[in-house]
Design a protein around this nucleic acid. Structure first.
Lengths: 205, 205
DNA sequence: GAGCCCATGTAATCAGTTACATGATTAC
DNA sequence: GTAATCATGTAACTGATTACATGGGCTC
C-alpha cells in the first residue's frame, strides 16, 4: 500500500470544504471516508506538517480556553490545484485483505463447527456495518430529495450497503454449506450463537 | 496493516500441503489467496529466511540444471503447530481501501461524465474478476461432487464471486444515477465505453 | 536476437499501526 | 473521584511495494 499517498488528498478534500484542526479532521474521517479509507492520528499530524511545508495548507492558531493549543488548517490555492489534479487522474486502485478467508482457505484441519464460529463472527461484524449503512443511506435519500448536493456521499453509502450485504449473504451461504458437512459426520450441534436472522435487515439495532 | 504477520501463515499454509520454492510459492499465491491477501517476492524471500531461523521451515537445495540454485522449503512439526494455533485464534480482521470511493466522495467538482468514466473503469476491472471467479467456482463445483476436499477453496471462490458481483451492481446503479444528473444539465453525451452488458455474466470472456 | 519463463534475492522507501506522553474541561 | 472528550503530538516499528540486479534456458 505504498506510493501515491491517498491520505494527503483526504485531508485536502476535507479542508477544501472547511478549515479544521487535526482533531476535527479525524472526527470527520471517522464519520465519512473511514469505511473505505481510514486514517489515524499517527498519520494526520505528520501529514499536516508536510502539507504546510509544501504550502498546500496554512496553519493558524484557533481560539481555545484551557488545554493544549488548537490549530486550524486551511487549504491554499495550490492545495486546491493539487487536489483537482489528483481527482482527475485515472487508474484508481483498491487494496483488500481478508484474514478470515486466509484462515478458511487453510481451514481443512479445523472442524466444521470451528469454521462456522469464525464465519458467524465475521457475519456479526458486517451485519452491524450493513445496518449502519442502511440507516445512513435512508437519511441521505431524504435529504437528497430537496438538495442533490449529497449525491457523492450517497454513492459511497450505497457502495457500503451493497458490499456489506454481500458479506452477510456469503456468510449465510457458507455457514449453511458447513452445517450440512457438519451434520453428515457429527451429531447436529447447535451453538448458542446460531440464532440467525433470516434477512440481514432485521439484525442488531 | 502492521502487527500479526499474515504472510507468515500463508507461506506455512501452502508449505503444509507440499514443499516448495519461493518462486513456486509466489505462483501458488497468484492462483489462490492473492485475491484476498496478496504477497510479493519482496516479502516471500525475507519471510522464508526468518521462518528458517525460527525453525518453522527447513531449506533444502532442490535439483535444477542451469541458472541460479533452487531451494525447496518444507514445513516442520513446529511450523505446523504455529499454523494450527493461528488458525484457531479468533478475532480476524479485514483491511479495505478504495481509492475510487475517495475520489467520488470528493468528486463534486468533477462533471458527471468524468465521474462516470471513473466508475466505468472500476466496473470493467471488477467485471473481469467476477467472470474469472464464476468460472473458478463452476469448475470447483464439478470437482466437489466427487471429492468434497475442495470445499474450503470453493468458499473463498464464492466469496469472490459475491463481492465482485456487488461491485458491478453498485457501479451500474451509480452510473445510472450520474447519467440522470448529467442529462439534466448537459446534452446526453454517450461515451464510446458505455456499451454496457445487461447482466454482469455476459461481460468479457 | 528478442523476449519470456525460471529463480534468487537486496535495498530503499513508504504507509500505516500502536503505544506513549501531556493536560485541561465537562458530565456523571 | 472517575471517566470521557478535547487536543496535540512523537517514536518505534513493521508490513508492503517498487525497483534493481543477475543469469541461464527455451521458443519464435
Amino acid at each position: 500500500m505504498s506510493k501515491e499517498n491517498t491520505t494527503v488528498y483526504i485531508l485536502l478534500g476535507l479542508l477544501r470544504h472547511e478549515p479544521m484542526s487535526g482533531y476535527d479532521l479525524k472526527k470527520r474521517i471517522d464519520l465519512s471516508v473511514s469505511r473505505f479509507w481510514d486514517v489515524g492520528y499517527g498519520q494526520i499530524y505528520p501529514t499536516l506538517r508536510t502539507l504546510e511545508q509544501q504550502e498546500l495548507v496554512t496553519k493558524n492558531s484557533g481560539e481555545r480556553s484551557g488545554g493544549p493549543d488548537k490549530y486550524v488548517y486551511s487549504i491554499t490555492e495550490q492545495g486546491r490545484d493539487v487536489l483537482e489534479r489528483w481527482l482527475r487522474q485515472p487508474g484508481d486502485r483498491e487494496y483488500t485483505k481478508y484474514e478470515i478467508l486466509v484462515k478458511l482457505f487453510f481451514g481443512s484441519s479445523m472442524s466444521p463447527n470451528e469454521n462456522i464460529a469464525r464465519i458467524q463472527d465475521f457475519r456479526a461484524r458486517q451485519s452491524t456495518e450493513f445496518n449502519m449503512m442502511g440507516r445512513f443511506k435512508d437519511s441521505l435519500e431524504q435529504v437528497m430529495a430537496e438538495n442533490p448536493d449529497h449525491l457523492h456521499f450517497y454513492l459511497t453509502a450505497s457502495f457500503g450497503e451493497k458490499i456489506y450485504r454481500a458479506y452477510v449473504e456469503w456468510a449465510d451461504e457458507a455457514i449453511a454449506l458447513l452445517e450440512r458437512k457438519g451434520t453428515a459426520i457429527d451429531p447436529p450441534v447447535q451453538s448458542e450463537e446460531s440464532a440467525q436472522n433470516e434477512t440481514p435487515n432485521e439484525a442488531d439495532c
